[in-house]
Design a protein around this nucleic acid. Sequence first.
DNA 1: CAGTGGTCTAGACCACAAG
DNA 2: TTGTGGTCTAGACCACTGG
Lengths: 233, 233
Amino acid sequence: MNNAEINNWQAVRSEVLSRIQNRQWKPGDLIPNEADLALEFGCARATVNRALQALAENGLLDRRRKAGTRVALHPVRKATLHIPIIRHEIEDRKQAYSYALISSKLDKPPPDIRAQMGLRATVECMQLLALHLADSRPYAYEDRWLNVEAVPAASKVDFEINNANEWLVMNAPFTAGDITLSAKQANAPEAKILRTTIGQALFVMDRNTRNVDVAITSVKLTFAPGYQLQTTI
Amino acid sequence: MNNAEINNWQAVRSEVLSRIQNRQWKPGDLIPNEADLALEFGCARATVNRALQALAENGLLDRRRKAGTRVALHPVRKATLHIPIIRHEIEDRKQAYSYALISSKLDKPPPDIRAQMGLRATVECMQLLALHLADSRPYAYEDRWLNVEAVPAASKVDFEINNANEWLVMNAPFTAGDITLSAKQANAPEAKILRTTIGQALFVMDRNTRNVDVAITSVKLTFAPGYQLQTTI
DNA sequence: CAGTGGTCTAGACCACAAG
DNA sequence: TTGTGGTCTAGACCACTGG
């Protein structure tokens, strides 16, 4: 018998969760159906449904109509990665953020970028190179291609003043994106810009964002040595 | 007038989403309250609630009692990172997976690992070094510390045969974990094991998992050059 | 076919926090 | 104080899919 009543969906969720963690219900096991659990917990089926859906979203349960609800065979393999706005990431550490535009031009993107963005060969984009600094030390180097056809307002913006990422966040909504994380050795220009030595291991984040099907921007962020990206399961 | 009826929560979600994407509702804007939207869409308030909660979970809306619902100022900054089981990651690419245990011993973990795991100084852990291979080529080097107090059954397992990660997934549930991603240059032993050269940039994933408050395992995966981690917003 | 989860509804009450 | 979201309930019907 439990002392605490199980009369809200979060209580149901933690009860079910603890049964999974206790291994009272093991990976692969079929658990009772919603109606039975509602009866047991003394609440409505909708409440049980809410709790089980939350657990299924977190990857702890597998649910299928008619087949019932099972404890997931391979529990929680999802982590939520918070994509930081670099300014915030730096300011959260009580460091001073600054931003410097290195160059800005209109040009046809190279084939690899064009392929990533899914653009026609003739499309011109704006290329922005910029440096983000923390306490006046190089933090990340930004190499961005911006589809001006998709975001015409961008051509009127002065990116000397406006941080491109922050401007886009406010002015160019996107619906989808993909991110690739990797490591690379610093080449000569990277080493110079980031004030490090050639060959250093750098953390790289490539990000492509789209609005419905049209590419907005493709950005490569190359971080100064020592950068870590943290996340929680 | 819309042709399609908005009578389920997913329809409400996409309608609201498209108003955000249209910039009919801009970042920072207050949107109508649930009751009004329910009236407009011709559905129950609970249905609207479901839709708006889903959007809020995705970071597109900020909701506060009494203050109402606003379009998020900094939309979608969350990506879901799927933590792969290395075997699956390799087999999905139609490569042959193999696994080799390099060494296994019982020892007190070094202070940095102990701190990460939050263990007392006297606790002994099992250290496992292993190599994951794809098509017989080194793929990732695994350096794992396993809290045998938390998972006593582990001491009886033969990790020559059983891949530690897969065994733990099936036998040691965890409730929380944190992940750190970084880049480093290969040192001599890493270069040797991964069959690469000293100084190469390697992608590193450090993962700590706990069951409630007790540390289960701390694992460092060092990937062979060229590794990329992909994810979607 | 029939059992399971998925969802809607109308109404109700509660918890929180802005003014 | 009071408007807002958060949640519960009971009952209903639907959608999917296993056997």
